[in-house]
Amino acid sequence: MAGIAGVVALTTVQAAAEQAFVTLNGDLKKEAWWVIAEFHPFTTEVRGIPANQIRKSWCKATEFRKDLIPKELLFESGADAMKGAGMSFAIEGRFDGAATRQIAVVGVFQECAGPKGRFMLVLDQPDGGKPKIRFLDAVRTNRQFGALSKDKGGKPVLWECMECDGYSVLKWDRKKNRFGWEPQAEEL
């Protein structure tokens, strides 16, 4: 970590304007990278779905992927910190109990008017078909980092950081026939 402590901007995949996907606004010696990270979306679709079809006000949306984030941040002492914490940027399952495979992904969006934030999508992944949005959670925030895991029952868990208690569990409500957030109560 000491080799990157003085880095202000990290470059991995660059947008047309040559802006890095991840920039750091702070000191890595004092704060975790995901706390001081600012993400700059540069794609106009997620899994083949145009950003403005996810939300009309969005011009850009970029799914988080490990290849977009500098290895120096994700790998501490040679170990994959996310994998060690049981987290990922995308998870698969049958989150509503249906036969169709689903994928949950997290990323960053930017509205055409400028504000940015974090999103989580749950998409149906039909064999040979186009993904269909089943659930969207989007929040404007200056701290856009997000990661996913599964709880003991296989439900998606959205994390706001890698080493904190800031998480939400997504649950399928059979009676309402839709996804919703569980009240935080039990330990994962």
Rank of each mutant, 00 (worst) to 15 (best):
V8D: 09
V8E: 08
V8I: 03
A15Y: 04
A16F: 07
Q19W: 09
G26R: 03
D27E: 04
K30D: 10
W33Y: 07
W34E: 15
E38L: 06
H40A: 09
F42E: 04
R47V: 11
R47C: 10
A51T: 06
A51G: 01
I54C: 03
S57K: 05
W58P: 03
C59E: 14
E63M: 15
E63F: 11
E63A: 14
K66W: 02
K71Y: 02
E76G: 05
A79L: 13
M82E: 12
K83P: 04
A85M: 04
G86V: 06
A90L: 06
I91Q: 03
R94W: 10
A98M: 10
Q102I: 03
A104W: 07
D124M: 01
Q125C: 09
G129K: 07
G129W: 02
P131K: 00
R134N: 12
F135L: 03
F135I: 06
N142V: 15
R143Y: 12
R143H: 14
G146D: 02
G146I: 09
A147E: 01
K150H: 07
K150G: 00
K152Y: 12
V157C: 01
C161N: 15
C161R: 09
G166V: 07
Y167V: 11
V169E: 02
K175C: 10
K175L: 11
K176M: 07
N177S: 15
N177E: 15
G180I: 09
Q184L: 15
A185E: 10
A185I: 14
